[in-house]
Amino acid sequence: MTWSMPSYTAPDFTLPLFTDAPDVTLVPAPRDGVAPDRYHSMSIFPEYFKVHGTWLLAEESRMDCVPVYAGGRIAVVEFRNLKKGDLVVVGRKERGEEGIYVHDTGFSADREDTDDSFIFRTGRSRETAYSKDYDSVYELLEYEKQHGKIVWVMGPACAFDADARAAFADLVRAGYVDGLMAGNALATHDLEAAYLGTALGQDVYTQKLAPLGHYNHLDTINKVRQYGSIHTFIEKEKLDNGIIAALDRCHIPFVLAGSIRDDGPLPEVIGNVYEAQNAMRDMIRNATTVICMATMLHSIATGNMFPSYRVVDGHVRPTYFYCVDISEFAVNKLRDRGSLSVSSIVTNVQDFVVNVRNNLCR
């Protein structure tokens, strides 16, 4: 497979648009957790700010956060993490008029222009042809295995099928997974399958219901809690199959963000929502490709944290964000929340992960 990184074209800062622009206005935060009036809110695109006559790129961005000037660079800070006195960029104009420039055309795109004003099939649905998307995923993951960081975001549906669990474990062992983010349910049902052969009491291969199977996920959680950690549970029970066991054996980090509806939960689940958000952001801090599967809320959360670019070794490169879900509503909801760079594939996630494994782990 061959794959080439799209080139990035930075703004031409010799143009009058930039040379005549004023320095950006910096206003101290009035108190902890509060931005000054007319604060600038970040997008998913590369953004530049003119400070002391120099245009500075916010190298690590996040949508819906505020830019803060500190130590000669632009930091991007969540509102809740602002400290009194932080120098916050203010201004709502984004084409240089206030020393702010949002560069949304930096990457070359393979778009087919058409003069037709009336055309069919411009959306993404279960009727869309996805053959090219699959090939692009295979080529991208081959590249990122050597040059990037791949993070997967998974819902519990990924753990309900024997073949899907085995396929993802193969991807972990083959080096196509650098991190995983999920909730209590994905880990619980995957560990239940490794421990008892069921997910929510149903055999992950035959779909037969086990006697008193509704206890199985609770028994699994309780046993993990007895051992004190997922790692110790896997080690002591000699579990050798599934998603979480593969991550544990290959020393791949994972973040489990809690929910108000969680059973148990497992010891590693982070119950404080803001601590979970911090852990998720740390997980994707250097991620260059994110693939979300069958988890709408986790996908939206990750999409809101994930910019359209990264600065790697001084060079700006694009990031890639995929959302895979059987529900058209879920993938469209993600796009509606501002994650405009998302590529969506409407399909069964169990089939998706098996197809990816079959084409990469040969």
Rank of each mutant, 00 (worst) to 15 (best):
P36N: 06
P46L: 01
A35E: 06
R31F: 04
A21S: 15
F45Y: 15
P22R: 01
L17C: 10
F18A: 06
A35K: 01
Y39Q: 10
R31T: 11
V24M: 05
S41C: 14
P16V: 09
A35S: 07
L17D: 13
V27K: 05
P22M: 00
M42D: 00
H40I: 05
D32Q: 06
H40F: 13
A29E: 00
H40E: 05
Y39P: 00
F45S: 14
G33R: 15
A29H: 00
Y39G: 02
S41A: 15
P46R: 06
V24E: 02
D20G: 11
D37F: 12
P30R: 05
P22D: 09
L15I: 07
T25E: 13
F18R: 05
L26N: 08
T25S: 14
I44H: 13
F45K: 10
F18L: 08
V27S: 05
P36I: 01
V34K: 10
T19L: 09
L17F: 12
R31W: 05
R38S: 12
A29N: 01
D37Y: 14
F45G: 05
H40L: 12
P30E: 02
T19I: 11
D32K: 07
P46C: 11
P36Y: 00
D20R: 12
R31Y: 11
A35Q: 03
D20H: 11
D20T: 10
D23V: 04
S43R: 13
G33C: 10
D32W: 13
S43W: 14
Y39M: 15
L17Y: 10
T19H: 10
P30I: 01
Y39C: 06
H40A: 12
P28R: 00
F45V: 14
R38E: 07
P30G: 07
A29R: 01
D32R: 04
A29Y: 00
P22S: 07
L17K: 15
V24P: 00
M42E: 00
P36C: 02
R31L: 09
R31E: 12
L26C: 06
D32G: 04
D20N: 14
A21T: 03
V27I: 10
S43F: 15
M42R: 03
T19P: 07
T19M: 07
G33Y: 10
S41R: 15
D20C: 07
V24K: 00
V34M: 08
P30Q: 05
S43V: 13
P30D: 03
I44D: 08
D23Y: 13
S41L: 13
D23Q: 13
